[in-house]
Every structure is written in structure tokens, then in C-alpha cells.
């Protein structure tokens, strides 16, 4: 194998880590039954926060931590509102998405206009490999948590049928808050990697916008399964990272190449719904449903 090919394959590390972590965070959160349409807005905020925090602290790790913290705050807010109040998940998600788009610009643009520097993770093959290993380890842990622990069972129960879950002994609000916290921690981390490792360029407004949706599609096309998501994230990341290679190789227009991941997501959704995988990877039954129990005073 020649070095160029290795670089092409491994160079995808940061992109993979960014999309993969965001996608499993999204999947984890949605497993608890909350339709997560705020993802793109929070991802955009995460990018802005990562940029600013890394710049001020002088280290990329600080950027990741800050993005994680801010994203967690959003996650908790969404989980709380969508569980506690009879609110449309779609409405609250998209509203917060808009807020996120706006806040990202407010946070990063003034700084960018005063300081022309970027602090990022180092870029070399070793780091690329580290990103891949790190994110896969996290993915395996998330998979373990979801499929083997009581917490995982509680999250899935809350997503499948929150009323039944509650009578089985699950505190739905608490479980969804935990899912929101963990899920958005990963989304924040993913956003920080997107900027600090994959595309470390001087910040420009709107950076990261649309990438959250790609992660959304990645997660959806793998049925929100953390291990299967490795595959779909890899395919998407390779398609995005190597789009120029692909373009030359297949002779496709750059625009069509960029379209492929989205088409793939649509096709994947159709495949899931018409094959036996439907049962295995079906979306949580209560996803996006208002969970509201009439409470009466004693």
C-alpha cells in the first residue's frame, strides 16, 4: 500500500471523529424519545465556542471542554422542556436551532474580527489515528451503556413508551436529562473536533452549519445504533473528506459528489423501513411524542 493511499484513508480521522461522535450523541439522545431537531444549531454554537475557548486558553483541549459544557447546557434545557411541558419536540428543537445559529455568530464573529489566529489540534497521522481510536472507544462505551446497563434499558424504555416505563419504575424526566447531558456532551465534543481538528481555518460566520444535519443523517441511516454508526460515519466522512478524489475517480461533478451523502441517507432510511431491519433498528416508538401526564394535586 502506498503512503498516499494510507494518508487518504487515515486522514479522515478528525472528520470521522467529528461526525461519528455527533451522530452517536444524537442517537443516544433520541433513544430516550426526544426528537432532536436542535442538533444543527447547537453544533454551530459548539464550533463557535470551541474556536473562542481554544483561542483564549491557548490549547485545543480547552476548546473541546468548553464546547462540551455549552452543548450539555442546551441538551439539559431541551430534555427538560420537552419532557416536563406538553410541548412539540419539533417546535422547541427548531426554535433552539435558530437561537444556536444566531448565538454562534455573536460568540465568534466579534473575536474573529479582532484576532486573526487559530488554535487547533496538531495535524499528523498519529493524531488522525488517535482520533479514530478515541471515538471508537467512546462509541463502544455508549453501545455498552445502551445495551447492557440498567441506565441503557431505562433510556430505551423512556423512548419506547414513557408511560409504561414510568410504571415499570423509570423516572422518565431524570433518564431523559441524563440522555440529554450525555448525548449533547458528545455533540459538543464532535463540534469541537469538527473545527479544531478537521477544518481549522480562521472562523467565518456560519461555520459548522449544516454539519449537524449530516450527523443527523448519519445516525438515522444507521438506525441510531452506535456500532453500525461507525460504518455509516466512515462512509460519510470518507465521501466528504475525499470528495475531490472521488470526483476525479468517478468523473462526477463536485456538486453531485456533495449531494451523495444526503442521497445515501434517504436511501438508507427507505431500506430500513422496507426490510426486516425495520424491527431491529426502528426509531423509538415514542420519539417526538408529547409525554404528558395529567398531574393533580393531592
Amino acid at each position: 500500500m502506498n503512503a498516499g493511499l494510507i494518508a487518504i484513508i487515515l486522514g479522515v480521522g478528525p472528520a470521522f471523529a467529528a461526525y461519528y461522535l455527533t451522530a452517536i450523541g444524537h442517537g443516544l439522545f433520541e433513544k430516550s424519545g426526544i426528537l432532536n431537531l436542535a442538533i444543527d444549531g447547537v453544533f454551530t454554537v459548539g464550533v463557535a465556542v470551541a474556536y473562542v475557548a481554544a483561542l483564549f486558553a491557548g490549547t485545543a483541549v480547552a476548546g473541546s471542554v468548553a464546547a462540551l459544557v455549552v452543548a450539555v447546557a442546551f441538551g439539559l434545557l431541551i430534555a427538560y422542556l420537552a419532557t416536563k411541558l406538553p410541548i412539540s419536540h419539533g417546535a422547541i428543537g427548531l426554535s433552539i436551532m435558530f437561537v444556536g445559529y444566531g448565538l454562534a455568530a455573536l460568540i465568534a464573529v466579534p473575536i474573529r474580527s479582532q484576532i486573526n489566529a487559530v488554535v487547533s489540534y496538531p495535524m499528523n497521522v498519529g493524531v488522525d489515528i488517535a482520533f479514530i481510536i478515541f471515538s471508537i472507544v467512546i462509541g463502544v462505551l455508549v453501545h455498552y451503556m445502551l445495551s447492557r446497563t440498567k441506565l441503557g434499558a431505562a433510556i430505551r424504555a423512556a423512548g419506547e413508551n414513557p408511560h409504561a416505563a414510568s410504571s415499570l419504575g423509570v423516572n422518565v424526566l431524570r433518564v431523559r436529562l441524563i440522555a440529554g447531558m450525555l448525548g449533547y456532551a458528545l455533540i459538543g465534543l464532535g463540534a469541537s473536533f469538527y473545527f479544531l481538528a478537521y477544518t481549522p481555518a480562521p472562523y467565518s460566520e456560519g461555520m459548522g452549519m449544516g454539519q449537524g444535519w449530516i450527523a443527523f443523517a448519519i445516525s438515522l441511516s444507521a438506525g441510531r445504533h452506535p456500532i453500525l454508526t461507525i460504518l455509516s460515519a466512515l462512509v460519510f466522512a470518507e465521501l466528504l473528506y475525499n470528495k475531490f478524489v472521488l470526483q476525479g475517480y468517478l468523473g462526477l461533478s463536485v456538486h453531485i459528489t456533495k449531494m451523495i451523502p444526503y442521497l445515501a441517507a434517504l436511501v438508507a432510511m427507505v431500506i430500513f423501513m422496507v426490510t426486516p431491519l425495520k424491527r431491529k433498528l426502528a426509531p423509538p416508538r415514542a420519539l417526538g411524542k408529547i409525554y404528558f401526564k395529567e398531574e393533580r394535586t393531592v
Binding site: 434499558a153 430505551r156 409504561a164
Partner: peptide, 10 residues
């Protein structure tokens, strides 16, 4: 009242 997609132990 059980949840169908979960196992018995879960």
C-alpha cells in the same frame, strides 16, 4: 405493561 423492544431482564 411490559416494553416490547426490551428483554425480559431489562
Amino acid at each position: 405493561q411490559l416494553i416490547g423492544s426490551l428483554t425480559i431482564s431489562e
